[in-house]
């Protein structure tokens, strides 16, 4: 029996009268790549932000690494967040910092790391994403794909046990999107991480998913492997996979 990394029970979230998450329950096992598929506006990004406490939930319960998010104080929440990597849709690199400074930024909390170790960690993280040469560049000098890779390198630098990917391939050409998907798989194998991947890119889902959950109007409508869901009897789910 594998360990449960994330356990979401009857989570609801509304913004005013707009109900974004209707009633979501799901879990993520250790070492698993869980893809959450859904149309734009179906509540995927809100859900992933709820998982790290960026957006508070209205009802239900979220447990990450067996810790109830709502019961944690700010200090405990920060400690938990250090075990979680988050790749933002826009990569969210700090504009005023170079790639090196971006990668060093999450390490500032750790007082035990000296300069040599810091340099080694930065180099290793950049090597993992194949971008050692851009270390002294500013984010504005990088392409969209490179920014995503650097964002991923920054996510990896704290060696997280769980990585949350928010639309990792959005806005990228098919080749770069494919490379990012490969990278997600490599990272899972290399570091034995568990991942939640939010996407509406079916090709990415096909490559990386161990299990897929499809969300519609803030609630899960189907779960299964890529092969199971693409052969679903439900026409809407099949249409998602471009099959009539």
């Amino acid at each position: 029996m594998k360990d449960c990394v994330i356990e979401i029970t009857h989570v609801k979230k509304s913004f005013g009268s707009n109900c974004v998450l209707a009633d979501i329950s799901l879990n993520l096992q250790k070492g698993e790549n869980l893809v959450i598929l859904g149309k734009s506006g179906s509540g995927k990004s809100v859900l992933i932000k709820c998982l790290v406490g960026l957006i508070p939930i209205d009802e239900g319960n979220i447990r990450v690494f067996n810790q109830d998010l709502s019961a944690l104080n700010a200090h405990e929440l920060n400690a938990l967040r250090r075990k979680i990597g988050f790749l933002f849709q826009s990569a969210a690199l700090y504009d005023s910092m170079t790639v090196r400074e971006n990668l060093e930024f999450p390490l500032r909390i750790s007082k035990t790391i000296n300069n040599t170790e810091r340099d080694a960690l930065v180099t290793e993280a950049l090597k993992n994403v194949g971008l050692e040469t851009v270390i002294d560049k500013l984010p504005s000098e990088l392409s969209g794909g490179m920014r995503k890779r650097v964002g991923l390198a920054r996510t990896l630098i704290l060696k997280p046990e769980l990585i949350l990917y928010d639309e990792p391939t959005t806005g990228l050409d098919p080749i770069t999107a494919g490379e990012i998907s490969e990278l997600i798989l490599e990272i899972q194998k290399k570091y034995n991480t568990s991942s939640v991947i939010i996407t509406h890119d079916v090709e990415c889902a096909r490559k990386v998913a161990n299990r897929i959950i499809i969300i519609k109007d803030g609630a899960p409508v189907a779960t299964g492997t890529f092969a199971q869901l693409s052969e679903s009897e439900d026409a809407w789910i099949r249409s998602f996979f471009n099959k009539n």
Partner: peptide, 21 residues
Amino acid sequence: AELASMKVTEQIDAMEVSGIN
């Protein structure tokens, strides 16, 4: 403008999820 831009591009959220205040 700088802080608003950081907010819009999720840079502030990125700091928060890194465990930095």
